[in-house]
Design a protein around this nucleic acid. Structure first.
Lengths: 341, 341
DNA sequence: ATGAAAGCGCTAACAC
DNA sequence: GTGTTAGCGCTTTCAT
């Protein structure tokens, strides 16, 4: 089980070879100011000669920091990780960390065993902070980390009064914009495909739908709202068929996700409706779909790049500052028009 | 930058509370034998009471191990990570580590900066071993790690005489089986779509094609072989069109990847050939395709699950044993018949 | 079976 | 500027 082979040079040996004290070598390594240039060079040469690499365990122990952060995927269904939504976030987070000395560690938490192991890892001080992706409403991990005093930033939130720092897209506003757009296009019988209501993101998107109608003084009819049991395409297909049965005059559909929208598209075409001429469809760009969102679907685009960047910014700040400034950031979405209806 | 909040209980405090020595507490934590049961219980209670969690930096420093391994993705094109080929490997590796106390750390290496940072991380002793995915032929990372004495296992190899421990699919054998299958079906004018020949995997698959023909005493004609510049579907499409032009009597295509096969399928249908009746197509299941390999394509299936499991087994062995037993494992592929031709 | 003590290699505070 | 020193919290002998 050993690594850092015996024989690995230590800071002490570097100091001896360079003919200086340990402290000086430490200063050179950490690029601290206040070292004569000639000394610095001598030390650097000794480092190169010996092929010295700092022992990170020792550094952590003495320095009280790990220079690493974890990006955790808490998702029992691991295939989700292949989805563009997540790969894009990972990329953005990686990019945001490029200019720091911080190593990014992706970790999977798919079971209680893995959750436990990770908590011990994090509480054990191997990371300075934690980024959480795809947290489910009842996941205890965020609280466990927060209770342990670990800087933590979540992507999305578990409820309306989330206590852990998070970055979220403006789901309510995005949905409102989408439905407002439909209304502006003259649509009046607008169906809503909600996701599972135990997910906060689904609640928000449905709320946006309601708000848009209310602001336009259009009656909110319960019969136009179908809350699916999940976000799948099949679910969207069924829900849309039901909407069509209830409201043959349906002229638009707002879907709480792109997969639901894809299902709606399928169901509408099967029923002989033209999209977007007869029925307009708008969904959120969650990037989950089997089939990508192409025309004729207008979508609500989430700023993934900015979400990732912001998560990192908040985390780094929490890592440096006093740890009490819980903050919540909600980022604008953008309506991407791809239809002419 | 601090974590492990000040006030975190230490082993010493646990010992004090339990009224035992530090050594005893350490033994309890590490489930070492030779502790009286009553003592163990007393210590455990103190641990629970204090909410004690071991400081992993200290443990690493004293114990010379990190209890963590890294799974590295060296891929400038990060979107590759979303491909089923990789997510499946990640899953398999995670599963193989479930029953160990080893934390799996996924890391991205997309640039020299990140490569450098990771090497320092690994050489610094933060991981006990490294698993490498998607290594390109000229990537220096494997050698850097090997030179540093870090247990390392690669997925695939960079050349025929790879020195670093690796697990690979039997690309040559798989290709041979595929082409032998085509020959058994009575096909004689079999085109080969090779990948870029600077990739060892592509060389092997092409060699398998040749060997199958030779064993069957069928002439290997260079005009039937097209080495694409990459593995893309478009590349497969072009190459197939060229093959058709050269050999209108083409009755089968062996493609070095599933994406190439998908391209072949498209080109053949465009040209009015029926697949598999007129022309049979076989590709490797790399799981890269935009369109999944469905009938009528027979494919060479790689044992991803077993590849991941084997990589972990080898790595754990290298971590425990003397570090000189470089090993190379090549796993069987399986022909998945999906056509009737 | 258990306590005591010697480090592991580094950072940071303090002298000079 | 630079050397010296005191830990950081744990594992691991070595006594007992």
């Amino acid at each position: 089980m050993g690594r850092q082979r015996p024989g690995t040079p230590t800071l002490e040996e570097v100091a001896a070879l360079a003919g200086v004290g340990r402290g000086t070598v430490s200063r050179v390594i950490n690029k601290a100011a206040g070292v004569r240039d000639s000394t610095r060079r001598a030390v650097q040469q000794a480092i190169d000669e010996l092929g010295y690499v700092p022992n990170l365990a020792a550094r952590s122990l003495a320095g009280h920091r790990a220079d690493a952060v974890a990006l955790v995927m808490t998702e029992p269904d691991w295939r989700q990780f292949g989805e563009p939504f997540f790969t894009e976030i990972v990329r953005a987070v990686g990019d945001a960390l490029t200019d720091t000395p911080v190593q990014l560690l992706l970790t999977l938490v798919r079971s209680d065993t893995e959750r436990q192991r990770f908590v011990e890892y994090a509480r054990g001080g191997r990371v300075d902070g934690v980024l959480l992706m795809s947290v489910h409403a009842q996941d205890p991990l965020p609280d466990m980390l927060a209770k342990a005093g670990l800087p933590t930033v979540m992507l999305g939130r578990r409820s309306g009064d989330e206590s852990v720092t998070y970055v979220d897209a403006d789901n309510t506003g995005g949905a409102r914009d989408a439905v407002t757009h439909l209304l502006a296009g003259g649509r009046r019988t607008i169906g809503a495909l909600g996701g599972p209501l135990d997910m906060y993101v689904a609640q928000c998107r449905l709320r946006g739908y309601r708000e848009a109608l209310e602001r336009a003084d259009v009656e909110v009819r319960d019969s136009l709202i179908v809350a699916g049991e999940d976000f799948t395409e099949e679910s969207g297909r069924r829900a849309t068929a039901e909407l069509l049965a209830r409201h043959p005059d349906l002229d638009a559909v707002f879907a709480a996700s792109d997969t639901l929208a894809a299902g709606a598209l399928g169901a509408l075409r099967e029923a002989g409706r033209r999209v977007p001429e007869d029925v307009a469809v708008i969904g959120f760009d969650d990037f989950h779909p089997a089939r990508p969102m192409e025309p004729p679907l207008t979508t609500v685009r989430q700023p993934l790049e900015e979400i990732g960047r912001t998560m990192v910014r908040l985390l780094l700040e929490e890592m440096e500052d006093s740890p009490v400034a819980w903050r919540h950031v909600i980022l604008r979405t953008e309506l991407v028009l791809r239809d002419s209806a």
